[in-house]
Design a protein around this nucleic acid. Structure first.
Lengths: 224, 224
DNA sequence: GCCGAACCGTAACGTACGGTACGGCCGCTG
DNA sequence: CAGCGGCCGTACCGTACGTTACGGTTCGGC
């Protein structure tokens, strides 16, 4: 009932420390933390927690937004636009994305958001979604369209192409991690997968003269 | 503490009805059901629930296994092996898979398994994983290898190819659904996506004479 | 008809947890 | 120094829920 903005920007350092403690707690335990545990871990009183965040949902929401606020701001691929540079950008993008989603923080937060989806009032799912796949698509879009403008890529629906890229990069890694399988991708494996995904994406959507425009790839999927 | 097998095969019809009631409950509510709610919905006493399933975990485990036991047994792609038939098989496979994972039962069960991953003793995550992506890969494998034997497909690691197929089919649909976005894919959209995924998979791993062996697709895992 | 087993409905117990209240400590302001 | 607001630590309350126990009912076997 208290929906008081929870502005991440204007929060004291102490409050951010508390949120970091909550994040650490969520990361190491494998379920949503209790308010008592948060208070103990953050060395603050429950009364203060309720005064600052109003509610358990408010605390979790603030934590998710706090984490989201520092994921933003990765270097957009820019510069020259030959084929090699674009593949390099896509590879770097994929590498970064795989590293993020296989990290313990991402796994824990996605678990929490999925578990809480629909149960509590403020849905963390929407926030995580906005800062997960949707944010990735948004950051990927300019690179793809620049590639198309430069005649390197060929597609009609940018969003669709971005989602195929997502599929090529992530495959079943995320769902396996969320379901508890802990393969713990190595740095080398991530780099290899990223390169493979970028090359495969180029094989599908590259505007090569060799191939006649990828028979099944041009139609969109959005219906709603 | 009672780990008593929970053999789905040898259970009375009444017990299966109870498990169906639990499934319905999980599907309509958006969290793990309480024992009281299960007893009320299934018209049985809690004492019986504890006698039959020993524990809350036992009940949930039995429910997941019960659902898994009837997902099995889809028609394996067989018969003639020309290019069109293989694409048709892959398309049908993808269509079926998309229909399953976008269904309310799959979403609810995956949510439950992810939420309970690591918290309770018996991890549903492993069961869902075995009957989700892993089962799909297992069922897909013979079709892929048959295609390779027939000279239609070219890949080195079957498992890797299967996981790329998974990525092309699912993309970010599952994670979006789990996070609470409810786009409710239409039948037509699913069919379109399945066809697109099958064609894209063939574009990457098809042994066509037109294209010189898919520049990035042949280095499935060995390139550093 | 009688017995025991299985089962239903419900009450009761213990615990965990969200949320609130209170006393005490610290630093700031007048 | 007095007063006070912010915060910590802790005790407390109400509720939800897992688990157990108990009385009543049905049903198959003798």
């Amino acid at each position: 009932m208290n929906q008081q903005s929870v502005d991440i920007e204007q929060m004291s350092a102490r409050q951010r420390d508390v949120l970091d403690a909550v994040l650490a707690l969520v990361r190491e335990e494998h379920r949503a933390p209790t308010m008592t545990a948060v208070a103990r871990a953050a060395s603050c009183s429950k009364e203060t927690l309720y005064k600052w965040f109003g509610d358990r949902d408010g605390l979790l929401t603030a934590m998710v937004q706090w984490q989201a606020s520092r994921v933003r701001g990765l270097p957009l691929p820019s510069g020259s636009l030959d084929r090699a540079a674009l593949i390099g950008s896509l590879t770097e993008f994929a590498r970064n994305w795989l590293a993020v989603i296989s990290g313990p923080t991402s796994v824990a937060l996605n678990r929490l958001a999925i578990a809480e989806a629909g149960s509590s009032g403020a849905d963390l799912g929407a926030i995580v979604l906005r800062n997960g796949p949707i944010a990735m698509a948004r950051r990927l879009t300019p690179a793809l369209e620049a590639g198309r403008s430069a005649g390197l890529l060929a597609f009609t629906d940018t969003d669709d192409a971005a989602r195929v890229f997502f599929g090529l990069v992530v495959r079943d890694v995320q769902i396996r991690l969320l379901l508890g399988e802990a393969p713990a991708l190595s740095e080398a494996a991530i780099a290899r997968d990223a390169s493979r995904a970028a090359h495969q994406f180029f094989a599908l959507y590259g505007a090569d003269e060799k191939r006649p425009a990828t028979a099944g790839a041009k139609q969109s999927t959005e219906t709603v």
